[in-house]
Design a binder for these strands. Structure first.
Lengths: 214, 214
DNA sequence: GCATATGTTAATAAAGCTATTAAATATAAA
DNA sequence: TTTATATTTAATAGCTTTATTAACATATGC
């Protein structure tokens, strides 16, 4: 490395640094608008070095995207520590999912963007992950069926319930620019709003399936 | 026009045809990935002609985008033909919104994409439209307050209710590639699924606010 | 028919991007 | 130190893209 005297901050090897910064830039601008030139500039290295380590922009992206896609697809998870209350299970799923996505607020846009603009790549990666998601769905389905049988929950498919949760949570992130504009929120204020909105989302998800009179 | 013998199909002037086809391509690939060369190829004219009529790619896009953004922002609307039942008002809003977006299934992605990648342009256009949306919101707020006062609806902000509807409806379109992949849907099958899902969405929205025991 | 407007095209300048190559530099090993 | 190996850079080929220009074609008004 050719830094004068001080060492680079994040990492002492360019290979890792490139990965870190590429992730930031790809999340910010998507695949198409990201250039290896810009990544190099932000990293502080020559643009050719990116191709030295990763050969093509596409390969670099793929290396990051698969990991991110996996994180996205597994962000819905049970918190099944002997909690028998279905209401609390659902509350846990909603809030846990919202928390995980809050740590990667720009991820939903990247996923949606790539899915839409590059369906071939998406399909290849989705194949590898399909099992994980379907497993989660059958698990949810099992719990759900018990509740429906007990007439505590209206008749609904696990897939629809999952869609409800994903829709309400994820929309908070893809619509951030619009909501921030309308409400005049800064980024921090927006994230604060998201946190509060979690309660509303749970009430909606739960109210949308519960048969109990509260 | 220099077509040999037959006349062009859609329009007999290139200016309108360019607008029509540009809309299709922009909706398909977003601003960045759309090239004036491809538009010209699909229109069947010389690429320079696009610049002759619209000067820059940016101006062409803006002409279309403002219209589309307006359509998007006004897609939530009351169907207030003397219907006193709030439940039916909500049902109407949900289904009507879903229908309108169904006619422009690729619009949500374009809006979100541009909002995210080009916030400056978005802001300029949003300013012009702000009033329309806020008007709609206060109208919803008025109806809502009545219901809350009558204890038929739980205490909820109009904005949150609107977000619920938008989230659940719009997510169906931005997540189409993922859902189609998981479920193995063709485009037509997917649109059929969306239609059915409208009922689930209404049940969720309504269940999420209603205090009545059904 | 002629002159002028408008519409259309071919050619190309300018700029940006990816990827490669060969040379330079640093690092490690012997 | 010397040699081999890995890292980094400068230079640039080859594309693609937007936008402009000048020339050509067609229509319109007189």
């Amino acid at each position: 490395m050719s830094v004068k005297k001080e060492r680079p901050v994040k990492s002492d090897n360019f290979e890792q640094l490139i990965l870190d910064i590429a992730e930031v830039v790809f999340l910010e601008k998507g695949y198409a608008l990201t250039t290896t030139t810009e990544i190099a500039k932000r990293v502080g290295c020559n643009q050719a070095l990116i191709h030295y380590y990763f050969r093509t922009k596409d390969k670099l992206f793929e290396k990051l995207f698969e990991k991110k896609f996996y994180a996205f697809m597994t962000s819905v998870s049970f918190n099944r520590d002997k909690n028998p209350d279905f209401k609390e299970i659902i509350r846990g799923i909603v809030h846990n999912h919202l928390n995980i996505i809050s740590e990667n607020p720009k991820l939903p846009f990247l996923i949606i963007s790539e899915m839409t603009l590059n369906p071939e790549r998406f399909r290849v990666i989705a194949e590898k992950i399909e099992g994980v998601v379907k497993g989660m769905l059958t698990e949810l389905d099992r719990e759900l069926k018990k509740e429906i049988a007990a007439k505590r929950i209206r008749n609904i498919e696990a897939f629809d319930l999952l869609l409800n949760i994903l829709s309400l949570n994820i929309f908070m992130f893809v619509s951030q620019p619009l909501i921030s504009y309308v409400k005049g929120f800064s980024w921090d204020e927006y994230m604060e709003f998201v946190k509060k909105r979690g309660d509303e989302i749970f009430l909606t998800v739960w109210g949308g399936i519960s048969l109990e009179n509260e």
